[in-house]
Design a binder for these strands. Structure first.
Lengths: 128, 128
DNA sequence: ATGCCGAATGATAATCACTATCACTATCAT
DNA sequence: ATGATAGTGATAGTGATTATCATTCGGCAT
């Protein structure tokens, strides 16, 4: 019952066009830049709908959500607390251990989020 | 330069008294219950200060922060998306893998957060 | 004791990401 | 065409958290 409307298609295209981790404002701004007129509420709803359909991925940071392309393998994130840059990594062994832990307690995993905070290579080098 | 004032001591005592995952409102309410008069802004500031000093632990959920006692071993969380209950687990192998991943890319880990979302044993049993 | 200074307090206003409301419109099945 | 259903967009509202600011507290030097 979710529809892929022209607005949602525009949002999806925009996100698929880069590897950025978009926040709602970014998407709205980028769309306006290229002359697509779309209300901010529609952007929020569109992002939520697309994520629910699995057409994009969402990650929840401290204060806001970010969205990214879904057409890549599952991965988690390294977030630099200095420059805010987000790196991705993939570690199947961690996923396997998560499943093990959940199985041990009868917990049914529907999703997970692993965030590593710290200093990226560049920022670490720049520290005193 | 952070001070452990009477208000902050009261917050700390309250949190240490149970294994709950407190949110700011809970703490403010519980303190008022036992006659401690304290402003909500002071609760927020106190929680932030205590967490910064390592006297309590904080975890960041989607919309709000939760705080818990710091005097137990490090652990991560299983969050039931149905009843909201939070379980804890400890899996040193996962931590080791995180360190490995970070080391591989020259990333210096300062902290991490692993949240597993899904249905707890009870809620899973209650599903159709 | 007194005065000073940085930090804390508390009432309240402000912020900010997001969600609800509501009138209107687009799409689809009959 | 008709009605049902979902989407749109402007805008108001929400809720957790943070900023503001006048006041107060706790040490420490005098």
């Amino acid at each position: 019952m979710q529809k892929l409307t022209a607005q949602r298609q525009a949002i999806l295209d925009m996100i698929n066009r880069s590897d950025k981790h978009w926040e709602a404002d970014d998407v709205a701004y980028a769309l306006k830049e290229e002359g697509v007129q779309i209300g901010i509420a529609t952007v929020y709803r569109g992002l939520a709908a697309l994520a629910e359909q699995g057409l994009i991925e969402s990650i929840q940071l401290a204060d806001k959500k970010r969205y990214e392309r879904a057409d890549k393998a599952h991965h988690d994130h390294l977030i630099c607390t200095d420059c805010g840059n987000i790196e991705e990594f993939c570690e199947p062994e961690i996923e396997a251990l998560q499943d093990k832990v959940a199985a041990e307690r009868g917990f049914k995993i529907e999703g997970h989020q692993l965030l590593l905070f710290g200093l990226c290579k560049t920022c670490k080098a720049g520290e005193s």
